[in-house]
Write a protein that binds this DNA or RNA. Structure first.
Lengths: 144, 144
DNA sequence: CTAATTCCTCAAGTACACTTGAGATCAAGA
DNA sequence: TCTTGATCTCAAGTGTACTTGAGGAATTAG
């Protein structure tokens, strides 16, 4: 009920209209169309987009977010259980990221103390658990 | 002493040679040149690049990182005090990011409980302190 | 000394996340 | 009804962070 135009949705989420259309190409929202071909959204889409904003704003990729949201029903409003499951999954990723940041912070604290004068002992210089598993390359250092 | 080739540096940091050259265009490293025009790095550059990897890996922009590193001396090895100052400054940004992630996490916890059935009360839906100051637009949500 | 590596520069390409613009259609208020 | 504003599609552009490739010179292992 009370379907929204793309402009309404933009106004309510703070996103640009173009961004909402872009997210649609990633399957994050799947609006219906009215007689004239204009997109019509439900209220649940406000929440979807808020979730996307929060997650991408924290540095998670759209692909990541889209993968989580793929578990939500397409056109009917997600249930409490739907959102709960997503929240729990995503929470794991957030916790992982916090842990990594805390490790980095602790290392920097160590550097403040040691002055980083010893290459061998400096933990910043050997960030083994920050760096990815498969060989050199800066690819996806914080991949979950 | 013991100056390193770009390949040596790549091997020791895990970065691609092309990435190190790219960082040079951003002023992050400023190698000398030997007679044949090849870049020569000092050991201190290993640490510089490790710092960059840690920071960019956590989602900080190169510009951010470069701004911090601009306070390090260009060609002489940074002193303990130099690194300490950078560590302290950067620590502030890390703490801010951790705090934002924790807020997001707490909101998700709230959503797990409430099931996000109320648009008005859902905190994910009104992430005022995640969203930037100046009006709508997803620009730089996590800017420090 | 030769051959294989490594390195050089510079231009162009890639991936992600969107924005901008053109040209046309749809919707809503005076 | 008219006209302004919102929306449509599709192509191309933007910024960030790099990678890839071409053509050529320097370095190093045998």
């Amino acid at each position: 009920m009370a379907d929204l135009s793309i402009g309404d949705l933009a106004a309510r989420t703070g996103l640009a209209v173009s961004a909402i259309r872009f997210y649609e190409t990633h399957g994050i929202v799947q609006p219906l169309r009215n007689a004239g071909g204009h997109r019509r959204y439900g209220r649940a889409d406000i929440r979807r987009l808020s979730f996307v904003m929060a997650a991408t704003g924290m540095g998670f990729s759209l692909a990541d977010v889209a993968a989580h949201m793929a578990h939500l029903p397409a056109h009917k409003a997600p249930t409490k259980a739907d959102w709960s499951r997503i929240s729990r999954n995503f929470r794991g990723q957030i916790d992982a990221r916090i842990a990594t940041l805390e490790r980095l912070r602790d290392r920097l604290d160590g550097c403040i103390g040691c002055g980083c004068l010893s290459l061998k002992s400096c933990r910043l210089h050997n960030p083994a658990d920050i760096m990815a598993k498969d060989g050199p390359g800066p690819r996806k250092l914080i991949a979950d």
